[in-house]
């Protein structure tokens, strides 16, 4: 019994310690962002890595999500003759929830893992020590570009995901199921408010920050060779996905 509480206690302590360290890294990163000069070349390279290279997966994910949304809401709405609202449901679900969350999860799987693995490898091969030894701050040199890239690229990806999702919904609903095209488009626009888009984009930015901060943290705290890098990568993906899902609820609740 005592052992159990010991274990529970140490788990809680570790959780608090870890969150503290991640927060600290986050704050340090913010401070370094505002200390010139910004390394534009590195930022652009990371944007390409985070953004451009994520486009295919995000496109595939969002078109199929939009399509299945249309299919499912058609099945349900037909029962009370509300087929006309498929467009509204697809658009609102995509823009408010599924666009940001699914993109966030995709990017954390793709980019978060890559960041943690790259930085983790640099850590275990002493490249991060080498940066310090060359009087260069690794947070400034490695984390700031990744952080900014994720922060700016996520909203763009989400807008893309939203649009493609809506198109996917349209294709299924109008072409496959034969609902009225004009009504679909009209109902998509009429019920969409600016606030819906804002919320979605705000989420996207926050998810970008979560992915970059957690993955970079895991990379920097990697210990012990190739095995350590593997563990750090897994932790980065699992942790950032979970925190995305959890914070998603709280952002939604706050905005409600």
């Amino acid at each position: 019994m005592v052992k159990f509480f010991d274990f529970l206690g140490s788990l809680v302590i570790r959780f608090i310690e870890e969150s503290g360290r991640i927060m600290l890294l986050f704050i340090k990163t913010l401070m370094w962002i505002f200390r010139p000069p910004l390394n534009l070349k590195n930022i652009v390279r990371q944007m390409e890595e985070v953004g451009v290279n994520s486009i295919p997966v995000v496109l595939i994910m969002s078109i199929f999500t939009g399509m299945v949304l249309a299919l499912q809401s058609y099945t349900a709405f037909r029962r009370f003759n509300a087929e006309a609202f498929i467009g509204t449901v697809v658009a609102l679900s995509m823009v408010r929830e599924l666009g940001p969350v699914l993109s966030g999860l995709m990017v954390s799987g793709r980019v978060g893992a890559a960041m943690a693995a790259e930085l983790g490898t640099m850590q275990v091969t002493e490249q991060i020590d080498a940066l310090y030894a060359l009087a260069t701050n690794p947070i400034k040199f490695l984390i700031v570009p990744r952080f900014l890239a994720a922060l700016f690229v996520m909203p763009v990806l989400v807008i893309l995901a939203d649009i493609i999702g809506i198109i996917g919904g349209y294709l299924v609903s109008v072409i496959l199921l034969g609902t009225n095209s004009t009504i679909y488009i009209k109902r998509t626009w009429d019920y969409m408010e600016l606030e819906d888009i804002y919320t979605g984009l705000l989420k996207a930015c926050i998810f970008g920050i979560i992915i970059a901060t957690i993955s970079c943290y895991q990379g920097f705290s990697t210990r012990g060779g190739a095995e350590g890098v593997g563990k750090a990568t897994t932790r980065a993906v699992v942790l950032s996905s979970l925190i995305i899902l959890i914070s998603n609820y709280f952002i939604a609740a706050l905005m409600f």
Partner: peptide, 24 residues
């Protein structure tokens, strides 16, 4: 602290045992 160490480190050059080259 890090900032002051950074200044001191400019006096140093270090060869790491395993090279520690930036592989990117």
């Amino acid at each position: 602290n890090e900032a002051k160490l950074n200044e001191i480190r400019k006096k140093f050059g270090m060869l790491f045992q395993f090279g520690a080259l930036f592989d990117s």
